[in-house]
Design a protein around this nucleic acid. Structure first.
Lengths: 133, 133
DNA sequence: CAGCATCCCCGCAGATACTG
DNA sequence: CAGTATCTGCGGGGATGCTG
């Protein structure tokens, strides 16, 4: 078979076909990545602690998110060889830096959330007016 | 038709069924939202300027992102009634605050990108070893 | 408890065509 | 130029079941 027949099917993990800058940015700003980083900034967590703390995250997505962050060197995974298994996740130094940036965003969001919601109401009201009136 | 037949199809905009806090956070950390905010922090942009500046964003996604950010009161849309149409997008005061937080993340990412990539190589190498060796 | 494997849905996002 | 409208795929992500 010709090599050219293969290239079409060559596939890296979704989204990897972009510049490294955006790739890293997307990992730390990913839906669950953001929440994981913020939680871990507080203190190390076990897997199930993270699940409870974040809430409404599936096992699969949490695992996936943690693996991505670990691979990027932001999260440290400490699996203790005991029964039942116990795995602790914590931030690396690099991860702590990232998490602090993310926290800035989170703090801002919490502070301004009300204003955002008001802005939405204004926007929606205007839109209704321009459509009906 | 019974109302109960309808409820299944009742659908708000995707992802709206979550707490407002996360919702706002997801808008500003969204794939294109991040990049738009950063670009606009520099200066106001026209629609096509944004497209070029960001690169590889479809018209549709850019429009959608801008509408979301406008609705949230982060971006101001100034449509001038001229032909050909000219629309300028800029940050509101609220948007500027958000954008500055996002920029922190972007600056960090650019600075530490190299370390992240190294961490990945280490991770991948370890994984290969543990699988083969 | 912490994960992996599998199945499957639906919604994000790109492509295309059209409008003011 | 700056959008809307419509179609389509494919991959994110949830649900479930199983393993060490």
């Amino acid at each position: 078979m010709a090599v050219s027949d293969e290239v079409g099917s060559v596939r890296v993990v979704a989204g990897e076909a972009m510049c490294p800058y955006r790739l890293v940015l997307e990992h730390v700003t990913s839906r669950w990545g953001v929440l994981v980083l913020i939680e871990l900034l507080d203190r190390p967590h076990r897997f199930s602690e993270l699940r409870r703390a974040i809430g409404r995250v599936s096992e699969k997505m949490l695992t996936q998110t943690l693996q991505t962050l670990e691979r990027d060197g932001l999260v440290h995974r400490d699996a203790k060889p005991v029964i039942p298994p116990r795995v602790d996740y914590s931030l690396t130094d690099l991860g702590r830096e990232a998490a602090e940036q993310v926290r800035g965003l989170a703090v801002w969001t919490e502070a301004r959330m009300g204003e955002v919601q008001k802005a939405r109401e204004v926007y929606d009201a205007r839109k209704r007016d321009s459509e009906q009136g």
